[in-house]
Design a protein around this nucleic acid. Sequence first.
DNA 1: TCCTTTATTGTACTAATTGTATCATTGTAT
DNA 2: ATACAATGATACAATTAGTACAATAAAGGA
Lengths: 139, 139
Amino acid sequence: MTDKKQPLQLDFHSGLPIYTQIVEQIQSQLANGILKPGDQLPTVRALAQELRVNFNTVARAYRILDEARIISTQQGRGTYITEIPPPEVSEKLRNESLAALTHRFISESFRLGFSEREVSQMVRDSLKSWKEAKDSDDE
Amino acid sequence: MTDKKQPLQLDFHSGLPIYTQIVEQIQSQLANGILKPGDQLPTVRALAQELRVNFNTVARAYRILDEARIISTQQGRGTYITEIPPPEVSEKLRNESLAALTHRFISESFRLGFSEREVSQMVRDSLKSWKEAKDSDDE
DNA sequence: TCCTTTATTGTACTAATTGTATCATTGTAT
DNA sequence: ATACAATGATACAATTAGTACAATAAAGGA
């Protein structure tokens, strides 16, 4: 119903940069459920044409959203709303997000034939080497 | 038993190229005995149709695996898992493929702002509930 | 049997679609 | 006038798709 494709509306005289308007409207549509995790956004060129704007302006907006982990842009493929949006939200949602992510990982590991033992060992090792890498960065 | 034909599962907005996902999953399946030396893989066209992907994308994955001597592709005949199963390579491959999977999971978790502590706790919980589910199945 | 035909398979090359990087232009504030 | 931010232009790179081709095997007929 209200979650149909909603064209962005720019105000060229508002003083707000176009890319900012794009960023904010996409954020707002995500917050309102008009856009949902996994949704594909228009290509930079398509959205640019629709908005009568240079596609680099759209690309800039997408880059900002990408750095904010809100969308995932993939060269040659397209841009998508991140599956698990960065939860500045509730602790509950935050926890559910990690649970979902972990569930997918473990499920996939088992599907591929790895054992519980192997999985937990690999997670330990991987976390350990991650910490070591981080520590050496901090020096 | 668990070594039946296992369909590949693609995630089209994971950020990983499709051909990479195909490569990694075939490697994992081989490492875990789901695929065995001598097994014939689906033809590029058949697998492409199953995955709803262009057959050149599958061909690209096969070419990579072929160059790695993991499969042998023969024009006009098909593609087969390489006969010679280098045992230590197999174990190595198995380890590497779980490591890659784990690395992606942890990387994504950190990217979303979760702490090492949270991740390892969630993995423990998730594995535990998995085992419980399995135990109740066995009854 | 032997040859021809046809279907099936992978290969090679090209095109289309997508995002990226870099620099030029424009407008505005200082 | 200068500096800076926003936008646009252009060239590029990565991924996937389209098309034509070549090798192999299987089928059919002389």
